[in-house]
């Protein structure tokens, strides 16, 4: 069930991620698998980026662990709808724990982009924002336009969280870029950058 490019959405994923990361300050970023890795890496390959290049369903909880360990720093999750769905129970765990410094941004193209653009559940009636709210996220947003994105930026970066937003984007595939993919390298680089210690 391939998604046709005719969706009502116009935001471009790469531009959205670039815009969000422009204002990141000293935030640490954890990405989900697939397009999110390339979106974040293409914006700026920062040592405070942890690319989870091969795991489905783990990005939110990795970021949660960092958020507990680094309570003064903002932690952003940038991931896709399929990746989040594979670990959706994490939202309930995070909703109960209420980490103030965690923001989850789902770049939702309503398709499994890496495996042939099959529909994910978000293209068929599943409302991730509603599930996040039901899980105890007090700040949630659905972003479909540039104006909405601009309005949400301060909340993404500064409002006491946990914060959750879905950004609906066109389902066009973006070019992959050469993101660092060695896990021992990115993990140690990240840890040194956010803690100031060597591993």
């Amino acid at each position: 069930m391939a998604v046709k490019s005719k969706t009502p959405y116009t935001l471009q994923r790469r531009k959205v991620v670039q815009r969000i990361l422009e204002d990141r300050g000293d935030a640490a970023v954890v990405t989900g698998i697939g397009n999110a890795v390339h979106d974040v890496a293409s914006a700026n390959d920062d040592p405070k980026n942890m690319y989870l290049a091969g795991i489905m369903g783990g990005a939110a909880m990795v970021a949660f662990g960092v958020a507990l360990a680094q309570p003064k720093r903002r932690i952003l999750v940038i991931t896709g709808d399929g990746e989040l769905l594979a670990g959706i129970g994490s939202l309930a765990t995070i909703g109960v724990e209420q980490p103030k410094n965690l923001s989850i941004i789902v770049i939702d193209n309503q398709a499994y982009g890496a495996t042939g653009n099959q529909h994910t559940h978000t293209g068929r009636g599943v409302d991730l924002v509603g599930i996040a709210a039901a899980s105890g996220f007090k700040k949630t947003a659905l972003i479909t336009t540039e104006a909405e994105l601009e309005a949400e930026l301060p909340r993404i970066h500064n409002q006491p969280g946990p914060y959750f937003a879905v950004v609906k984007v066109v389902s066009k595939t973006s070019p992959r870029i050469n993101a660092p993919k060695d896990g021992t390298y990115v993990s140690r680089r990240f840890r040194a950058a956010v803690t100031g210690e060597s591993a």
Binding site: A59, V66, A69, S187
Partner: peptide
């Protein structure tokens, strides 16, 4: 202490804890 819905969440959380220096 963090109660999980499923154990795999905990593995991911432990990765984050270490990445964040705990």
């Amino acid at each position: 202490s963090v109660v999980l819905t499923t154990e795999e969440e905990g593995v991911a959380q432990m990765a984050g804890a270490w990445l964040g220096g705990q």
